[in-house]
């Protein structure tokens, strides 16, 4: 059995919880509770390598950039098709499914290299607001990609209303652009 509009209700609930979290003291408490985790991150193998060998850190950073470029390519190709500016003559479902595969692999590398870098500079980024904005954008992006965008396009996407298509594509591009741009800004801060 299914609740009518269950997914929409779940989405609204999640938004309400997120908003409540952001506007209440719970946000600050959660942040304070995370300090030991970030202190521990610097003592891990990744943290020690990242702090000791600048060259290794830079190579991982280059890997992070490259996989981010790949992710950007997958997002732009998929959302470009959704907006109707790319691959208009190709079946929507096939382009989405194939771009999604590239997206997932890039995301795996992005997150892995990202965790490595975070371990090297854990305490620095812990105190940077822009780092938390980025994590929030990343979380929103991942939830959106896997729980909203993917199911929406999984079956019979050709019949979707053009409005929904466009709004989803714009939101998706916006999220991943923000993830990348705030990431760049972490490097300039602190």
């Amino acid at each position: 059995m299914a609740i009518p509009f269950g997914r929409t209700l779940a989405c609204a609930l999640l938004l309400a919880v997120g908003l409540g979290f952001a506007l209440s003291n719970a946000r600050v408490e959660a942040w304070q509770a995370l300090l030991p985790l970030f202190e521990w991150m610097e003592t891990t193998l990744f943290g020690v390598i990242g702090k000791t060998w600048g060259g290794v850190f830079a190579v991982v950073q280059a890997g992070h950039l490259l996989s981010m470029a790949m992710l950007g390519g997958a997002v732009l190709a998929a959302d470009g098709r959704l907006l109707g500016v790319l691959f208009r003559d190709q079946p929507l479902a096939a382009v989405q499914a194939q771009a999604h595969r590239v997206f997932v692999w890039s995301l795996v590398v992005v997150v892995f290299t990202g965790v490595f870098m975070a371990c090297g500079v854990a305490i620095k980024i812990y105190y940077l607001p822009v780092f938390w904005y980025k994590m929030l954008a990343l979380l929103v992006g991942v939830l959106f990609a896997f729980l909203v965008r993917r199911p929406l396009l999984a079956d019979d996407p050709e019949t979707l209303s053009p409005l929904v298509r466009r709004v989803v594509a714009v939101a998706s591009i916006m999220v991943w652009f923000t993830v990348a741009a705030t990431g760049r800004w972490i490097g300039f801060s602190g």
Binding site: A69, L71, G72, G73, Q90
Partner: peptide
């Protein structure tokens, strides 16, 4: 400079991976 990388290299890598048979095989 770095963000433009996401557009230019993102597109280039998709083309290269397509040639290698690793991306968008049906296009």
């Amino acid at each position: 400079h770095v963000l433009a990388l996401m557009i230019s290299l993102g597109m280039l890598f998709l083309i290269d991976l397509r040639m290698l048979g690793l991306a968008l095989p049906s296009v």
